[in-house]
Design a protein around this nucleic acid. Structure first.
Length: 169
DNA sequence: GGGACGATTGAA
DNA sequence: TCAATCGTCCCA
């Protein structure tokens, strides 16, 4: 069953771990569906979080983070990889979950390549989209947490907050 | 208008 | 350890 807006419009620290074990579905124009299980995510939370793109205020790139939960936030990194994020919480509260890993693709850049996700998905609504959405599976996997990856620039506190969630079963 | 820099990856 | 590669952001 497809996750609805209530699932997404909660605090990112609740949504992020809840996304583990869920099924990310990508439906192509050909009609083929690629279904993968989310295994690794990271939470980015508000303007105080120096690791979060929203920490420097609203910009052209991050504006969708300030919209309601359930929308897709996609951006290009290192000039070659698209990062797939799920916006959470409510309007004006900028939060997002970076999906870092799924079954069949063990990295954020690899999974967007596998699922053919690019800038055209910016602002896509996971609640109503016909080409990408997330389904509940009824499975509640156990998980572990670690600091987030690749954000040393965020300083000693924010670079070490244990907001990376990894499925452990 | 110009320069620095990534929420990464894969090869040396 | 290091290059690839370019849109975004910030300063001038």
């Amino acid at each position: 069953m497809r996750l609805d807006s209530h699932f997404y419009q909660r605090d990112v620290l609740e949504v992020a771990p809840d996304l583990l074990g869920k099924t990310l579905v990508r439906k192509f124009e050909s009609g083929d569906e690629l279904r993968v299980t989310i295994t690794e995510v990271e939470a980015y939370r508000g303007t105080d979080d120096l690791g979060c793109h929203a920490s420097r205020g609203i910009t052209e790139r991050n504006r969708v983070m300030f919209a309601q939960g359930g929308l897709v936030y996609v951006y290009l990194i290192y000039g070659m990889y698209w990062m797939f994020n799920v916006v959470t919480s409510v309007e004006t509260d900028p939060q997002a979950v970076l999906v870092r890993g799924v079954t069949c693709a063990d990295g954020p850049g690899k999974l967007t390549r596998l699922l053919a996700i690019d800038k055209s998905f910016y602002g896509e609504d996971l609640v109503t989209s016909s080409r990408i959405w997330i389904e509940d599976t009824g499975v509640v996997p156990s998980f572990i947490t670690t600091p987030r990856i690749g954000i040393d620039y965020a300083g000693p506190y924010w670079s070490k907050v244990p907001w990376r969630f990894l499925m452990s079963t």
